[in-house]
Design a protein around this nucleic acid. Structure first.
Lengths: 195, 195
DNA sequence: GTCTATATGCCGATAGAC
DNA sequence: GTCTATCGGCATATAGAC
């Protein structure tokens, strides 16, 4: 309420916010550092004070969004011990998050497999940030509820089906809270994974 | 055998071939038109004689590879009428193709959802070229062998699971002819799709 | 169709005052 | 930390001879 509020002198965050919008809208290489700085309301000198190179903006953006996604997924989630039901809870939460964050959803779709992001950065995100998925898979396999396929294949499949689902809900935004479609998307996923 | 052979005076194709290699290796924007021309052994003037802009190179490349994939999929394929078995035949053929064409496989992974390719070009590829997938899905649904989920969702899921599979076999090239992994990848796909 | 030569504009990044 | 001013380079695309 107060006029001062948190008074974001946080130019660095403003740069990341603007970069997200422009990278999604125009693509990485079609976005000049000058345009990012302008949209963020800072000077180019300031931009390069916070980020050594343009690629560093992208790397930090990618990691911070993945981290935000993972944090959202594991916080306030009640695991009841039933793998299928827990998987459903997580799946719906992941879809919810994507729908609530259309810009970040588009960012995932565009850059999850792009060469604009260094391979080691993508690897870091997969290993350290998406670790909770690996754990769930292993737990399910021990209980013989998830199919006994190689872990790497299962993980890649999870990722691919999630991207397919959010691609669908991106292209059909009105179906985002249609129960039939949401349940279908989970069934598609779960039927693939289950033993 | 003969020294003259087909004597490729076909500079246009040489440009597309070089572009494929460079786009996969360095990314679209990190690849200069000058480097494409040099790798193809032609002058930049020649390049711009055949392609009005750099983006046109990408568009033509994308469409020609998708077309090549589709043509390969439907030619010399014996459909026996059993949906599951026909789906397996196509799936294995798709994996085979990807493994035999590592460059084009990487191209798919990198650019299938990239902003470097115009949306209408991607749409054109999906609709006209991948039409045989839609037909198979509809046929399977009529026979109640494929799950009665919305077509667009099923199609997107097919695409996503295929990309996941070739991503896996790209990262684990030694498993490309391991029957266990290949069958697992089809089971993962079919379990998702089946009624 | 293919080449050589070139323009011209924009981009990432730096210097240095405040 | 933030700004203004600016550089050097490179990339796309063109002009015009052959």
């Amino acid at each position: 309420m107060s006029r001062k509020a948190v008074m974001t002198t946080d130019k660095k965050q403003a740069i990341l916010d603007s970069a997200l919008q422009l990278f999604v809208k125009k693509g990485f290489n079609a976005t000049s550092t000058a345009s990012i700085a302008k949209a963020a309301g800072v000077a180019t000198g300031t931009l390069f004070h916070h980020f050594p190179t343009k690629k560093d903006i992208m790397s930090q953006l990618f990691l911070s969004i993945k981290q935000e996604f993972a944090t959202n997924m594991i916080s306030n989630t009640d695991f009841i011990g039933d793998i299928e039901q827990d998987a459903n809870t997580l799946w719906q939460k992941a879809i919810d998050w994507a729908i609530a964050q259309p810009l970040k959803q588009l960012f995932f779709l565009q850059y999850s497999m792009s060469a604009d992001i260094d391979a080691d950065v993508r690897k870091q995100a997969m290993n350290s940030i998406l670790g909770f998925v690996v754990e769930l898979i292993e737990q399910g396999k021990q209980q013989q509820i998830i199919a006994d396929f190689p872990n790497a294949l299962l993980l890649e499949n999870c990722h691919g089906q999630y991207l397919a689902a959010i691609r669908f809900f991106t292209d059909n935004p009105n179906l985002g809270d249609d129960d039939a479609h949401r349940n279908a998307s989970f069934r598609l996923f779960w039927q693939a994974m289950k033993a």
